[in-house]
């Protein structure tokens, strides 16, 4: 369990660093940085919205890599990590969609539009919610890990083609602002929040991993009572 302890320690360090980073980032974003020239204070939701997508990307990427690793090597650790990645990814994905929707209402005038990035990220959420649903319906740990890994792999590989097809379909989302056109104070606040959310995602994933490992151990004990008793 050396690897498990490493993940645990790494997660704790990330968690301790995330607390001051979040505090500083929120202060910088909500008080220190100037309001946006066009959108005013509405723009400040970006300090939560955009970092959420950093957390989403990091978590889903972890899930994808761990799923491939599981299919190759069949280590339960990789399955636990993939599960943790998807669950934390779904959390940040939802946060990103909700904050984006709240921002979209005063800015675009609608809660929802069929823009490529919105549509792709919403589909991403559905794909990975499907992953969690599949896990809930399978009892055998090995079968569950294998099928879940396949669902995550195919779902992730499909994302670019989903994105390009929806982008061809229609486009409205403003292109990302490049750091040169934005006030440097906004850039600093945003960077701090991005780092804070990445640390938060790492911390949450490590906690979820520990939980998944405990669940896995409990399952093994339940499935093989004689092995435990003898």
């Amino acid at each position: 369990m050396a690897q498990g302890q490493r993940i645990e320690r790494f997660g704790l360090i990330a968690g301790f660093l995330a607390i001051p980073a979040l505090a500083v980032g929120l202060y910088l974003g909500l008080a220190w940085a100037p309001p946006d020239a066009m959108m005013g204070n509405v723009q400040r939701i970006m300090y939560v919205h955009f970092p959420s997508w950093i957390g989403t990307a990091l978590s889903y990427l972890t899930a994808f890599i761990c799923s491939i690793a599981y299919l190759a090597r069949r280590r339960p650790t990789m399955d636990y990590l993939a599960h943790a990645g998807v669950e934390v990814g779904v959390l940040f994905n939802t946060t990103g969609l909700i904050t984006g929707s709240i921002w979209g209402r005063p800015t675009w005038g609608v809660w929802w539009t069929w823009d490529p990035r919105l549509t792709t990220t919403a589909l991403m959420l559905v794909i990975f919610l499907g992953y969690l649903a599949v896990r809930a319906f399978l009892e055998d740990p090995d079968t569950r890990a294998r099928i879940a890994a396949l669902v995550a792999t195919i779902g992730f590989l499909n994302l670019p083609i989903v994105y390009y097809s929806v982008r061809w379909w229609r486009t409205l989302h403003q292109p990302q602002s490049s750091p040169e056109t934005v006030d440097p104070q906004i850039v600093v606040a945003l960077r701090v929040m991005m780092i804070a959310f990445a640390l938060l995602a790492a911390y949450l994933m490590s906690r979820r991993y520990i939980l998944a490992r405990l669940e896995g151990e409990r399952e093994r004990v339940e499935l093989e009572p004689e092995a435990q008793g003898g």
Binding site: L123, V126, I127, G130, A133, V134, F137, L138, V151, I154, G155, N158, I161, V162, Y164, S165, V166
Partner: peptide, 18 residues
């Protein structure tokens, strides 16, 4: 899977969007 008839469209339709 036990809930196969619900889960198949749930998994299939999102990836078929393109």
């Amino acid at each position: 899977l036990r809930a196969r008839q619900v889960l198949l469209p749930l998994l299939l339709f999102p990836v078929l969007i393109p």
